[in-house]
Design a protein around this nucleic acid. Structure first.
Lengths: 119, 119
DNA sequence: TAATTATGTAATTACATGATTACAAATGAT
DNA sequence: ATCATTTGTAATCATGTAATTACATAATTA
């Protein structure tokens, strides 16, 4: 079972463009090394390594040492789990794609009414 | 079009249990006031308000003043958009639910082979 | 108008992030 | 054994988070 702390970690890991881009690279090139990955970014290798630590804590990345190199792999299971939970939680809203439009329309109506009332 | 900054904000907003719980309450009780919402939590009203600011920045929450009170509403559109993007990006992995199992199996196989090679 | 209630702002504090440079350790090649 | 390469660790710095208490503003009610 996925805990709140788990979700905190996963969302936090995803809350940085560089880390999401790292996941993109791991998806495109499974088994890439730390150095090769870092070379794709403008920031330093150390910065990339710190991002890797955060991704690993969230369970989004795994690695295996191969000689003096380290091969990196994406693990999408946490994303999968969150995706599932969202689908569960919010399906009522977007089962039909009009859900949020309806909510927005109601909010607009309330706002309009509020403006009238305050005049 | 949703930008990287947008996604940073949304994920960051979701990366805190209290904020996710706030969204749950807004979903269950649309139009709830700041004070009534804050009363449901152990932390101070100010702490809750700061969370609301972060949720609002991410576009996950909207509000409208009603007299001296403020009514709060969830807005799931950003979640919707991220959900859509994920489904797009990772559908190849979980179109069949065996995707990540296959990847995990391959990683295990590599690990096993690595151990053999190093003996 | 005065008192009460709901929300908002300011200042502060402890701690975490994200980045850097410099150095250390492990591995493979010559 | 030496040297280059790849990865990891340590120390540091500026900035951002998350929380607090104290005070200020705005809107009903008596």
């Amino acid at each position: 079972m996925i805990t709140n702390d788990d979700m905190d970690h996963v969302f936090h890991a995803l809350a940085h463009t560089t880390r999401r881009e790292i996941l993109d690279h791991l998806r495109a090139e499974p088994g890439i090394s730390v150095g090769d990955l870092a070379a794709k970014f403008d920031v330093s290798r150390i910065a990339v390594m710190n991002h890797l630590t955060i991704l690993e804590r969230a369970g989004l990345m795994t690695s295996e040492k191969q000689g003096r190199s380290r091969k990196l792999y994406i693990n999408i299971m946490p994303i999968q789990e969150i995706h599932d939970r969202w689908t569960d939680t919010y399906s009522a809203y977007w089962a039909d794609r009009l859900g949020h439009i309806k909510v927005a329309a109601e909010a607009a109506a309330r706002a309009a009414k509020g403006e009238l009332d305050n005049e």
